[in-house]
Nucleic acid binder design. Structure first.
Length: 178
DNA sequence: CGACTTTGACCTGCGC
DNA sequence: GCGCAGGTCAAAGTCG
């Protein structure tokens, strides 16, 4: 059935062609991985929020991960208000399905065709009240088996349902990254 | 009937 | 200023 293998990849740069050439210079995020299960996946993200700078991880077997691509969230809204940029976390997952069940409930609010990509990008928002987390899901043109998921923001609530699937993903991640 | 998806329109930022 | 691309809104449709 599902056949996930987890990639982590840079999000904001050009689509990864073959492999990313980032080194494990800073292993902050790396270490944080070990704490994933306690808080759920976005708990991990929140842990990573403590890492100020961009830290990229890549390991030879094509897993890569990027933290810290930042994005405007409040731009264009209230004038005079300082632009607040939420960190974005993108990662690639090799999967037959676009939607990875990470245990949170998401409502789709948009879909756009993306330039240089024959697959559309889908936009989701967390349906939990007061939770402003968004994610984008996109399949790579160059490798249809790879789904790029970009999370934006951090969940302020616990995971909503048990996620055997995701546990599986996480376990793979930990195998790969340790 | 509520929650969610679909989809075209609209808004904004950016490069030329 | 214009056009393009990315991101969001919201009305209508679908589903359980």
């Amino acid at each position: 059935m599902e056949n996930y293998s987890t990639y982590f990849s840079s999000s904001s740069s050009t689509p990864p062609t073959s492999s990313l050439t980032l080194s494990m210079a800073d292993s902050h995020a790396y270490n944080e991985f070990q704490g994933i299960k306690s808080n759920g996946f976005l708990g991990l993200m929140s842990e990573m929020g403590g890492v100020p700078a961009v830290s990229n991880i890549d390991v030879p077997q094509s897993r890569s991960f990027m933290v810290g691509s930042e994005t405007d969230v409040n731009s264009g809204k209230k004038k005079g208000e300082k632009k607040i940029r939420k960190p974005r976390y993108a990662f690639q997952t090799r999967s037959q399905v676009d939607i990875l069940d990470d245990g949170y409930r998401w409502r789709k609010y948009g879909q756009k065709a993306v330039k240089n990509n024959k697959f559309p990008r889908s936009y989701y928002r967390c349906t939990h009240q007061g939770c402003n987390v968004k994610k984008q899901v996109q399949r790579l043109t160059k490798d249809e088996g790879i789904v790029v998921t970009t999370y934006e923001g951090m969940h302020s609530h616990p995971i909503e349902k048990s996620t055997d699937n995701f546990e599986h993903i996480l376990s793979q991640m930990q195998i790969y990254t340790s």
